[in-house]
Write a protein that binds this DNA or RNA. Structure first.
Lengths: 235, 235
DNA sequence: TCAAAACCTGACCGTATGGTCAAGAGGCAG
DNA sequence: CTGCCTCTTGACCATACGGTCAGGTTTTGA
């Protein structure tokens, strides 16, 4: 009972406090934007005196930069879901799941990220030009390979990625609008499941795959129904 | 030549000046956010002394409110494209075209709109709860009717709308990111055409329609191919 | 036990912001 | 021309902001 008794050494405390501040900052930046956020608001949200913030983060911009980089890491990590996949159905399906989960679990971070990019990426332009560009090219290559292998319809991989980003991120960035259109109530577990299913269904069909292959519990016996012939579209 | 000689009466001048200021304000709000925008910046952008802004718009918030409402009108008007259509192919296709055109022609307004919603719609919450809600319910009903008539796959109309909004708006809101991934250059006419085509193709296929029905010159004879089996892509 | 290091915070400062105002410039009707 | 109303603007004000700092408290290592 000596080791786990005091696991909170100096460095741990510092890391903990920083994380606490970062969480408060993320929320305030998301709700007010960089310009609208004030150190005082963040301090209040974190329950600390303003001067203490400046002890851990020299400037407002430093704090903001840390918040943005944090969410960028998470955002980028969602790619892992796509890597391990054999084909487009699992790969893109898993990626959609991962990104929808990010929108749900990190709505503030998502908004901060959106805001940052919308305002011209003043603090992460270099990341866009290096990490993100590499990442994007890698995924495009993978998708192109799937297309060449005849595993999916020949769509422009770049615009497919944009659509994936847009469709999933929308549930965070425009969450307020969605909530309003949902009768003022936040999406329930069921709603989120339906959202995921809709997005996956639309996109997977959009790239020429028949049905949301993955988990699809309470709906119909798998494989028993096809809805490919939507009444030959009438046209 | 007496009537059109001086069409600029007092009221016209006022309207003209207001429009000029609104345009400058839209850009500044889009680039800096509401909190980051300053009346001085807007004044400089408009080439006017700051005090003159306050003659036309009492407060920064008034100015902002006007900008937001303007873009909301445009945004809502894009619906007209969907109304006149007989079926989902033309209706949704035209809507995508219209919204992509908005993203292209009004990138600043789009960003202001996104920012407003992201921050909880402080100034247009009432619009969301009335106009937008009615609009949305109307379109959902139309889409549901199409589904019931067997004209498209049975998708959740609400999530389909979200995807339409997200996918098209993305090209404005995340335009900077797209530009960066495009080698730092803005999308060309050709790029925009490809974007439109991709979005339309993905979504129309996503709702069970075979091909971007409208203008689609070089691809395949319409109606001659079905690609339900995921293998035969490659065509 | 003790000195040094890390941490905390109330009070303070220079600046930039949204907004005001009073004094004019310009133009229109009579 | 003349009086009146719209428009324009430089100077100004109170406030709130990001950031600093000196002096205190707690923790750490020896």
């Amino acid at each position: 009972m000596t080791a786990p008794e005091r696991p909170l050494r100096r460095a741990d405390i510092r890391r903990e406090r920083e994380a606490h501040i970062l969480k408060a900052a993320e929320k305030v930046f998301a709700e007010a934007g960089f310009g609208g956020a004030t150190m005082q608001l963040i301090a209040d949200m974190a329950g600390l005196p303003k001067a203490n913030l400046h002890y851990y983060f020299a400037t407002k911009e430093d704090l903001y930069r840390r918040v943005v980089r944090n969410i960028f890491e998470i955002w980028l990590h969602a790619a892992d879901a796509m890597d391990a996949a054999a084909g487009p159905a699992e790969g893109i399906g898993a990626y959609i799941d991962a990104k929808m989960e990010i929108s749900r679990r990190h709505p503030f971070g998502s908004k901060v990220w959106a805001s940052e990019v919308m305002h011209g990426a003043p603090v992460i332009q270099d990341y866009l030009e290096t990490t993100l560009r590499d990442w994007t090219e890698g995924r495009c290559a993978v998708i192109q390979r799937w297309i060449d292998a005849g595993l999916m319809a020949p769509v422009d991989p770049r615009h497919l990625l944009y659509m994936l980003w847009a469709s999933t991120q929308h549930y965070a960035d425009f969450g307020h609008q969605i909530e309003t259109l949902n009768g003022g109530k936040p999406l329930s577990d069921r709603d989120w499941a339906a959202a995921k299913r809709s997005v996956k269904g639309l996109i997977l069909r959009g790239i020429g795959l028949p049905a949301p292959s993955g988990k699809q519990p309470p709906d119909a016996p798998p494989g028993s129904r096809r809805r490919d012939a939507p009444a030959p579209a009438r046209d």
